[in-house]
């Protein structure tokens, strides 16, 4: 990755992480907690973007991976007395496993069928959590506070833990999309039949990227459980599958920075509008419509098209 664009790209990504690290020293308490939360959610969007932005597969059921990470971590800590780090690792493993198993048959479909199948299985996963409520506490959820290390209460620890998870997934995704494998993904996105004709095993490629995407979503879910010490079924509901789609589209699908930006913008948009209206579904729905109609590339996509064609 040496040379002109490579160095710039590297500098851009490391610069973002450095900026996020520096931000904790200048931000007030409110934006400090918000940013910690945004980084966790942005991890989710980064994972989502691998699938939507770079492979062209739209999922409406990603909340199941988020929830798999959340419950994998939460239940093992709650019942088995796992520590924070083993719990997190197990959460990510659960999400990876679920994504692999789900992808193995869901990827037999394509296009619109794939979309519908993801949405249905997302809902089935949600219902499964409700069905086994004796274990999962269903709708009501459960609290991890007293089972987690006391240090996690500290806002600085929260912030930097969130930053660590985010940075790992963010850099991994940036590296991945610039690797030869990433090029194959883009080829699949642009024309799957041709990619297949060129001899690529597109099914396996899609399965790998779906698994990675699910794993990152699970990492976000597990981090959420640990940092905000609550595990509940509402995180598996459909709205939580729509959010990463919205964030990614807003920031710009198929750009590495887009999902991060989209998550932050949307968070503050909802937060800001809550001051004068509680109709936040208008904000969500309106944003989706406006994006599709007038702004299909999203923020970073537009920047790339107009200003800086080199950004990944």
């Amino acid at each position: 990755m040496k040379g002109g664009p490579g160095a710039r790209v590297l500098a851009l990504h490391l610069g973002l992480i450095a900026a996020l690290f520096a931000a904790q020293f200048v931000l007030g308490a409110y934006h400090h907690t918000n940013l910690a939360r945004i980084m966790v959610l942005a991890t989710y969007a980064v994972g989502y973007n691998l699938l939507l932005g770079y492979t062209g597969l739209m999922s409406l059921g990603h909340a199941m991976f988020f929830a798999a990470g959340m419950y994998g971590a939460g239940l093992s800590i709650y019942y088995l007395g796992f520590g924070a780090i083993p719990g997190f690792a197990l959460g990510v493993a659960c999400a990876l496993g679920l994504a692999l198993a789900f992808g193995a048959f869901a990827l037999r479909t394509s296009g619109v069928s794939f979309l519908i199948v993801t949405m249905m299985f997302g809902q089935a996963f949600y219902l499964t959590i409700l069905y086994f409520n004796q274990v999962t506490f269903g709708d009501q959820g459960f609290i991890l506070s007293d089972r987690l290390p006391a240090a996690l209460v500290d806002p600085d620890v929260k912030y930097n833990a969130a930053l660590l998870v985010f940075a790992a997934c963010f850099l991994a995704s940036a590296f991945l999309v610039r690797s030869p494998f990433g090029r194959i993904l883009v080829a699949i996105r642009e024309n799957e039949a041709r990619a297949r004709l060129l001899g690529y095993d597109t099914y396996t490629c899609k399965l790998v990227v779906l698994t990675l995407s699910g794993g990152m979503s699970g990492a976000a879910g597990a981090a959420y459980a640990l940092l905000f010490s609550y595990v509940g079924a509402s995180f598996a509901a459909i709205l939580n599958s729509i959010y990463p789609l919205l964030w990614t589209l807003l920031g710009g699908a198929g750009t590495t920075l887009g999902p991060v930006l989209g998550t932050g913008l949307m968070f503050y948009l909802v937060d800001f509008t809550s001051g004068w209206t509680s109709a936040y579904l208008f904000v969500v729905g309106g944003a989706l419509l406006v994006l599709v109609l007038f702004f299909p590339l999203g923020v970073m996509g537009t920047v790339r098209a107009k200003l800086a064609p080199w950004i990944p």
């Binding site: 007030g28 308490a29 409110y30 400090h32 907690t33 918000n34 939360r37 709708d139 009501q140 959820g141 459960f142 609290i143 991890l144 506070s145 905000f228 010490s229 609550y230 509940g232 079924a233 509402s234 937060d271």
Partner: peptide, 29 residues
């Protein structure tokens, strides 16, 4: 998030009012 906003942005003295148990349990920590 709302509890955080109350504490750090609005700077309120106390928070009050929720009914549904999953909201209470999600916010209490």
């Amino acid at each position: 998030e709302v509890v955080e906003k109350f504490a750090t942005a609005h700077g309120v003295d106390f928070v009050y009012g929720p009914l549904f148990s999953h909201v209470v349990i999600g916010s209490a920590p």
